[in-house]
Every structure is written in C-alpha cells, then in structure tokens.
Write a protein that binds this DNA or RNA. Structure first.
Lengths: 237, 237
DNA sequence: TAGATTGTTAATCGATTAACAATC
DNA sequence: TAGATTGTTAATCGATTAACAATC
C-alpha cells in the first residue's frame, strides 16, 4: 500500500499542467515554423510566456523528452505533447446555437487546423434550418441525438441562451458526449465524468473592470456613485 | 513594521476571489429576479456553483455584509459586489478586428446590460470602413489613438490575427489603455500595471480533448496513431 | 432560549518557484 | 574536461475546505 498524496492517477497530470500543454504546443509550432530544431526550456518558456522552472516541471509529468546540456528537439516534443493531449486523432464537434457567436465559432479556422472538425450545427430557430455556415448546414436541435450518434460527435459547443443551455447539455450527455464547451452564461450541472469548460465573456470584462478601477484616479477619491441595472440578464446570441 | 505574508495590498483581494465575484453577481441577479430578498451562503453557493465555505471566505474579503442566523440581503450584497468590481460606472470598450468573432462581440448584448459600452470598432480592412456593426461604424485602425482619447476608452478587445495583436496592444497601452481582453492566440507582452485577460478558443477545445481521450475505449488499448498538421497556425477572424 | 448561519481560524491541498545534482 | 541544461527535490506560496465560535 503506497500512500498517494497527489490527486494523481497512474497517468495523473495536474490540471494546471494540462491547461498549459496547448500553449507549449503553439510555441513549439511557432519555433518549428521559424526553422528552429532544438530549444532550451528557457527559450520555450519565453515563447509560451511562462517561467522555465514551471515548464520543466510540467514536461516532467509527460516523460523525459529533453537532453541535459542540449535542450529539446522541437519536432519530437511537439509530437509528444500533441499525443498526450490526444490531438493525433481528429475530433468531431457540434455547435448548438447559431447566433452571432455560434456563427463565428462555426467559421473559426483555428479549430480545423488543430484537429477539430465542426461536423454539425444545430439551432432552434427554424428560419436558420438549411442555411449553410462554414460549409455545414444548420439543422433543428431536434436532431441532436441522431447527429451525435451518426457523426460520432466527441465535443459539444454551447452558444445559446442561458435559459436553454442546461436542457441541451443534458441531452448531449445522455447522447454520450463527455466534453462540453459552454459559452452560455450559466452554471451547468453535469454528472461526474463529464468535463465542462466555460468561456464567459462578460465575466472576463468584469475582471478587467475590477483591475482597471484600481488604478483610475477617481478610485482614490472614494465615491460610491449610484447606478442600477448592474449584473443584468444575458444571452449568448 | 508588520510582516505581510499575502500578496495583499490594503484593499488586497485575492485574484481567485476577484474572478468569482462576477459569478456571485450573476447568481444574485437571478435570485433577485425570482423575487428572493434574502439568501444563505449555502443557497447562493449552489446558484453560483461553488462551495459555501469558499463563498463566505470570498465575501469576507469585501466586508461583513451578512447577518448571522439570517443570511444575506440579495439586493444589498448585489450592490456591494457591483461596487467592488467597479460596475457602478459604465466603461467604454473598443473592439479591434471585425472578423466573425469581432462582429459577434460587437453585437453581444451581454456587454451592454453589464455596464460595458462598445463605443468604437476598428479594422485594418478598408472595405469594412463605414459599415455599421451593432450600431457602431467601423473605422480604420489608424484612428486608434484618437478613438481612445476622444471616447475615453477603458478596455480594448483584440479579435484580430495573432500577427497583428502585439502591435495593436502596444498602441493601446501607449494611448493609456490598461485593460485588454485578448482573443488572438498569442502571448502578449505588456508593461507592469496593464492587465491582460486571454480567451483562447482552441486551447479550451484542446483541454477538453485531453479529458475526453482519457475515457474513450481506444485510449486503454495503447496506440500512438500517427498524424501530422497538429498544433497549426491560426487566426482569430 | 434554541436554531440558524455568518465570519474566521486552522488544516489541507495543490501549484509555483528556486536551487541543484545528474548528465549530456 | 568545462559548460550547459535537464529533471527533480525541497521550499514557498496561495487557494480551498472543514470546523466552529460568535451572534443574530
């Protein structure tokens, strides 16, 4: 019986490390494009915008892919990280909700080049049905279960009003999807084992507002200016 | 001389707490709309999707706004959090880059209802100049400095290709902007005192891919399927 | 007063960083 | 061999959680 302190399963990679692997991948791609074949942890750390000690620590969770005194082979490390993330196989994505944001996502070229295929678009508004966005026809949300099964969808992207998000998430989960990217400004509850990432645009602006406030001149001069309508309701559309 | 352990200035609120304040604000708005006038930390925590101990700890950084044995007054707490974040005053936002994502952001209703006014849109493509998106006319990026000064812009949103992001960020900073929301998939370097938040769509999908991979059947069966073109270059457009 | 719930303390946990022995 | 740089250990730091005294 070995005591295991960390939340590390056999293949346990800390969550914070996982979140940085894509940054390293991008930095390596950049270096590769520049024709760099070898790089030190220091150089890669700068390119990724992190501390080199952290980078080495992160990479140590994947294995020993560097050479002491030399550094890392750019192509090799890039492949190893891509494999670790699971990008050596393409993944199929369904986007639900084709308002402004959903359309932008459906058109986003960055997904394709990274191994994500938007294979289906769903929207509740029947006026959109049949229209083509980014080369894919919009279908009724009613088709969700069929689409997930037939097109082998691995990831669901929710770009719809907060009021509809939970129901669609439930259906995605029931259909077997275990990864959801949620742009709707609402808390989703999903069963254990389903991974949800949240992108919340107003939250980001609010965090910026907080910091911005702390350095504007008027902040020092106290003041609790009155205002209402703050924190209003919202949709992602 | 008092030793100060935490990275807490007089008004020091931990970064993790700041990032959750917008969630609490939203949850309170929801409760308020339902007609709830008082709530416990437990109820609010559930609505915000966090642990109630963490919620109370977070709120304790702002002050003592609850009543033991009773809970929190929804409206009062909502106001206090809004004030803390700095939402009692509207903030002006410029969006740079009006590709699909930029247009979606310019149209995003959630900003308005939260005290953010998109007052200017800039794009390098002159075919877009003069077109109106979300009620605001697109202007040349050349106007950046004038726009920031004349329209009192507090926050810059970058929705442009990675290759252009650093240059525009530099100009925003030089013009006095201290808060940037960056959708371009690149590391921005900015001087001390400037706050950058990053939203990276492919990174989010990659993190999901990692987790999704760990529970798909084929993962157990080893396998290092070969593939290339992974981690490619990208634009936000 | 008895029950409820906050605000805070202390314990735990995880993530970051510095430092350095291992080794190319 | 001397210089460079990794991978790892140990120290630090910050964030989360449990527990409970304070108090409505």
């Amino acid at each position: 019986m070995t005591a295991r302190t960390q939340a590390e399963s056999p293949r346990g990679i800390p969550e914070a490390t996982v979140a940085r692997l894509p940054l390293y991948l991008r930095a390596l791609t950049l270096l590769s494009d520049e024709g760099t074949s070898t790089c030190s942890s220091e150089a890669l750390a700068v390119a990724a915008g992190v501390n080199s000690a952290m980078l080495r620590k992160d990479l140590s969770h994947l294995g020993s892919y560097g050479t002491r005194g030399v550094g890392y082979d750019v192509e090799h490390l890039r492949y190893q990280i891509a494999r670790e993330i699971g990008l050596t196989t393409d993944r199929n994505v369904v986007v639900v909700g084709l308002g402004n944001l959903g359309q932008a996502l459906a058109n986003y070229a960055g997904f394709r080049t990274r191994g994500f295929r938007v294979v289906a678009l769903l929207d509740a508004d029947e006026r959109l049905h049949g229209t083509v966005v980014g080369g894919v026809a919009v279908r009724p949300v009613h088709d969700l279960e069929r689409v997930v099964a037939d097109l082998d969808v691995a990831i669901g992207v929710l770009a719809l009003p907060a009021s509809a998000a939970q129901e669609v998430a439930d259906r995605l989960v029931a259909a077997g999807v275990t990864a959801i990217l949620n742009f709707a400004p609402t808390v989703l509850s999903v069963p254990e084992g389903v991974e949800v990432r949240k992108v919340d645009l107003s939250t980001e602006l609010q965090i910026l507002a907080f910091h911005e406030q702390r350095r504007s001149p008027s902040y020092l001069a106290d003041g609790e200016p009155v205002a209402t309508g703050v924190g209003g309701r919202e949709e992602v559309r």
